[in-house]
């Protein structure tokens, strides 16, 4: 699977409250509706600035804070294709893979806002087509790769009737 899109660069420690504010997420399970408010507290009208397939690029500790699974779901429902960050907080990491949202861990310092990116998950490479460089990515642990390939935890459970490790 090769993903292709333009980078939207955010900083370090982007918490799940910033991805989707608590004041919205409790009111509905309609993720399309929630997606209208993505990153609103730190960048008003963010939803109007993205195109389908675009990629979030962030620094350290992306997805820290609350356990809300609405965070990766809102990112997916906003049409974003992946998150590339220097590191991820653990609950978000699990939630994203459980919902089939690809996460890529690598040094993001050289990627600029607006750069055209290509992510090759199978071969573990991020290419910055604008910057003209490529980087290797830290591979997902094997079990998480299986979950992602299954399309998330719901699909994994439907396929195996429970956790199938190994």
């Amino acid at each position: 699977m090769i993903l292709h899109g333009f980078a939207h660069k955010l900083g370090d420690d982007i918490n799940t409250d910033y991805i989707i504010s608590g004041k919205y997420k409790f009111n509905t399970l309609d993720m399309k509706e929630l997606a209208r408010h993505i990153f609103e507290d730190i960048e008003p009208n963010f939803i109007d600035k993205i195109k389908p397939g675009d990629i979030i690029v962030a620094g350290r500790n992306f997805g820290c804070g609350s356990s809300r699974e609405q965070a990766p779901l809102v990112i997916k429902n906003a049409g974003l294709s992946a998150v590339v960050a220097s590191s991820f907080a653990r609950i978000f990491y699990r939630n994203a893979i459980n919902n089939g949202l690809p996460l890529v861990e690598c040094d993001t310092s050289r990627i600029q806002d607006g750069d055209e990116l290509e992510i090759d998950l199978e071969n573990g490479v991020v290419r910055d087509l604008t910057g003209g460089f490529e980087m290797g990515i830290n591979p997902l642990p094997p079990f998480m790769m299986k979950l992602l390939q299954d399309g998330g935890l719901v699909e994994h459970f439907k396929k195996y009737g429970g956790f199938s490790i190994g």
Partner: peptide, 15 residues
């Protein structure tokens, strides 16, 4: 802490 999908998985499988 876990997410909602994982809580669902625990409710179904206990694991």
């Amino acid at each position: 802490g876990i997410g909602s999908s994982e809580l669902a998985a625990v409710m179904i499988s206990g694991k």
